[in-house]
Computed example of a mutant assay.
Amino acid sequence: MGNDIIQVLTQPTVDVVLAGRVLGIGKNAAYKAREAGEIPSIKVGGQYRVPTAKLREMLGLPLRPEVNAA
């Protein structure tokens, strides 16, 4: 799940299944929640994608990842 959180923090969108995993629900529940509007999504190229800014907001994570200048 650590890699899932990294994707949520670094990618603009993730798939519905990954969004469900970070929310602690299974694949079927994630798709049902997306259909019900409980997981926000957009349709891109025939696929539903979950904007990570909204997902981070739902999880109480920073809206923008911190960028550390080295």
Score class of each variant (00 low, 15 high):
34 R>H: 05
14 V>W: 02
61 L>T: 06
57 E>C: 00
21 R>D: 04
61 L>D: 02
67 V>G: 11
19 A>R: 09
62 P>E: 08
32 K>W: 02
15 D>V: 14
10 T>F: 04
1 M>D: 05
64 R>G: 10
8 V>H: 00
65 P>N: 12
58 M>C: 01
63 L>R: 15
62 P>K: 13
2 G>F: 03
67 V>F: 04
21 R>T: 09
9 L>D: 06
67 V>N: 11
45 G>V: 08
44 V>Q: 08
30 A>V: 06
8 V>K: 00
35 E>G: 14
16 V>Y: 02
41 S>E: 03
39 I>D: 01
37 G>D: 01
23 L>C: 11
21 R>F: 00
23 L>I: 03
25 I>T: 09
33 A>V: 02
37 G>F: 02
70 A>N: 13
48 Y>Q: 11
3 N>L: 14
69 A>L: 10
44 V>L: 10
20 G>A: 12
66 E>V: 13
70 A>Y: 10
56 R>W: 03
21 R>I: 07
61 L>V: 09
25 I>V: 15
1 M>C: 09
40 P>E: 09
61 L>G: 04
6 I>K: 09
56 R>Q: 09
29 A>F: 02
69 A>R: 15
30 A>E: 04
67 V>R: 13
10 T>K: 11
5 I>A: 10
25 I>M: 11
6 I>L: 10
6 I>P: 00
11 Q>H: 10
47 Q>F: 03
13 T>A: 11
56 R>K: 15
48 Y>K: 15
54 K>F: 05
44 V>W: 01
45 G>W: 01
67 V>W: 04
7 Q>H: 14
56 R>G: 03
12 P>K: 15
57 E>V: 02
39 I>T: 06
70 A>S: 14
38 E>A: 14
69 A>G: 10
38 E>V: 01
42 I>T: 15
1 M>K: 10
58 M>G: 01
20 G>N: 06
33 A>N: 11
49 R>L: 15
35 E>N: 15
53 A>N: 05
44 V>N: 06
20 G>R: 00
28 N>S: 10
37 G>H: 03
24 G>I: 07
21 R>M: 04
32 K>I: 05
49 R>E: 08
43 K>M: 08
9 L>W: 03
40 P>M: 11
39 I>A: 05
14 V>M: 09
46 G>T: 13
64 R>L: 08
13 T>Y: 07
47 Q>Y: 05
69 A>V: 10
15 D>W: 02
1 M>L: 11
42 I>N: 01
45 G>K: 05
31 Y>D: 02
1 M>G: 14
63 L>Y: 05
54 K>R: 13
33 A>I: 01
12 P>R: 12
21 R>H: 09
37 G>N: 04
15 D>M: 10
47 Q>D: 05
58 M>Y: 02
22 V>C: 00
13 T>N: 06
60 G>M: 04
54 K>N: 08
13 T>P: 00
57 E>I: 03
2 G>L: 08
